[in-house]
Design a protein around this nucleic acid. Structure first.
Length: 451
DNA sequence: GCATGATCATGC
DNA sequence: GCATGATCATGC
């Protein structure tokens, strides 16, 4: 048996749907399920469709031109969420730059996807998992516009000899994620002698969440910022947003609040103003584009003296969890690398009023992600070795990485008070901590020349 | 009850 | 003046 058995998309889909509800343990005929990563996909390829896994550039079902993807989702309190990004083919830096999107390896393989999804439950054995849904997926035109821009962005870095500085945050829906045994898996690039990390095309997990909700589970769609996607043929998404907001540059917060009738001193006042300026009814962060692309709006306030008051925090981490993580799959890396930030910059004027200056889209450059990696490694090392704690009668000091030790990030408490603690591996407790981006680092990003 | 963004207090 | 630890305010 081989994949030539399935000549049409319909035949592939029909066979896939027959797998719905069948426990994977009873599908598996080769004992693959007990192996590690990618086991579930391999079981369906081998034992259900009857072909050997291949890493060729052809789609899995060449006659039907369909690529099989088996992907996990999670049921969370806030709904269905993709458990991970969807990884496609490895990017061949040496050849891909010569192609167009239409002739690219990505499009050749992934134009039509057969998505089979299962719910991942941490406490359940894989043999009891079942495929819950199976659909044929073609990218809708509105998404394809953005995906093409993403592809161009990746390719332009290759053409500029910057394949080593590609990161997932560069792009919106289609990203280049690291793929390989470890971070030292590198390959040649055509226009630079610097080796670049091996990367694969992938659909960001934020975008996968949207596919799951809208196309697989039929949930209602979030509000769109761009209602006519045709404008994306001549403008990038970021340019369109900047164009919409620039008429408001130079206005004070008070004037904007009066103009849009945003009352009171709500903590989220600035986000409300952003929504109004963009012409969005709900919250910017909840729009389809921001959700899909994992764009996080952040307000930055620059004081009269040109400084920013505070560093930027990430969620607290549990000491007993972080010591069991690998950097490549760590929650910190997952929070930083695929994320794009939209900084809304407010500057204090001579009267002490804050003026909306501009916005800036930013994602952390590869080099700085490596620096965060170093801070993370040190943090894990210190926690494993046993944190040194000393109480001076007022505050408890620790020896986690300080702001002075890195130009990018540090570790600092983020708790309700000093009794708000998590256990340490050795049984002691310490106030909840999190990673912070240094105040000065944020200042540098904001002050950099902008487009 | 907790996460998150914002801000404060102290001492070098 | 600023780094570091502590704490507050708000919203879900």
């Amino acid at each position: 048996m081989d994949t030539r058995k399935y000549k049409t998309k319909e035949a592939v889909l029909k066979r896939a749907q027959e797998a719905i509800g069948v426990p994977l343990g009873s599908i598996d005929r080769t004992g693959r399920l007990r192996t590690g990563k990618g086991a579930i996909g391999t079981v369906l390829e081998e034992s259900w469709f009857g072909y050997s896994p291949n890493s060729e550039s052809e789609p899995d079902f060449p006659d039907a031109r369909v690529e099989l993807k088996v992907t996990p989702y999670l049921h969370t309190r806030s709904g269905i969420r993709a458990k991970e990004r969807l990884v496609c083919n490895i990017i061949n830096y040496m050849t891909e730059y010569q192609k167009s999107f239409e002739t690219s390896d990505f499009w050749h393989k992934c134009e039509t996807l057969l998505i089979m999804s299962y719910e991942h439950k941490p406490d359940k054995p894989k043999s009891e998992f079942t495929i819950d849904k199976a659909i044929l997926f073609s990218f809708p035109e509105e998404d394809l516009r953005i995906i093409k821009q993403d592809w161009e962005k990746i390719i332009s870095k290759i053409r500029n000899g910057e394949a080593h500085s590609i990161t997932e945050g560069d792009t919106l829906y289609l990203a280049a994620c690291t793929k390989g045994v470890n971070a030292s898996s590198v390959r040649k690039q055509p226009f630079s002698s610097t080796p670049a990390k091996q990367r694969a095309y992938s659909l960001k997990s934020s975008y996968m969440t949207r596919i799951l909700n809208k196309y697989i589970f039929g949930a209602e769609e979030d509000e769109h910022i761009i209602t006519d996607w045709r404008i994306l043929s001549n403008n990038t998404f970021e340019d369109i947003i900047i164009e919409r907001l620039s008429p408001f540059y130079g206005q004070t917060v008070d004037r904007l609040a009066a103009y849009f009738e945003v009352l009171g001193h709500a903590k989220n006042k600035n986000e409300l103003l952003l929504s109004r300026m963009m012409g969005v009814k709900g919250r910017v962060s909840q729009t389809a584009e921001f959700q899909n692309a994992n764009i996080v709006p952040k307000t930055v306030r620059i004081q009269k003296n040109g400084k920013i008051k505070e560093s930027m925090s990430f969620p607290t981490f549990k000491f007993n969890e972080i010591i069991n993580e690998d950097w490549e799959t760590s929650s910190l890396k997952e929070m930083i690398e695929p994320t794009k930030f939209m900084f809304a910059i407010f500057e204090e004027n001579v009267d002490g009023d804050y003026v909306f200056k501009r916005i800036k889209f930013w994602n952390m450059p590869a080099q700085d992600i490596d620096e965060v990696h170093r801070v993370w490694e040190r943090t894990v090392r210190i926690i494993k070795d046993g944190v040194k704690l000393s109480f001076d009668g007022r505050v408890t000091r620790n020896n986690l990485p300080k702001q002075s030790e890195s130009y990018v990030a540090h570790v600092r408490p983020h708790a309700r008070d000093s009794n708000d603690v998590y256990p340490l591996p050795d049984g002691r407790v310490m106030s909840k901590q999190c990673f912070w981006l240094n105040r000065e680092y944020i200042e540098k990003i904001i002050s950099e020349e902008y487009r």
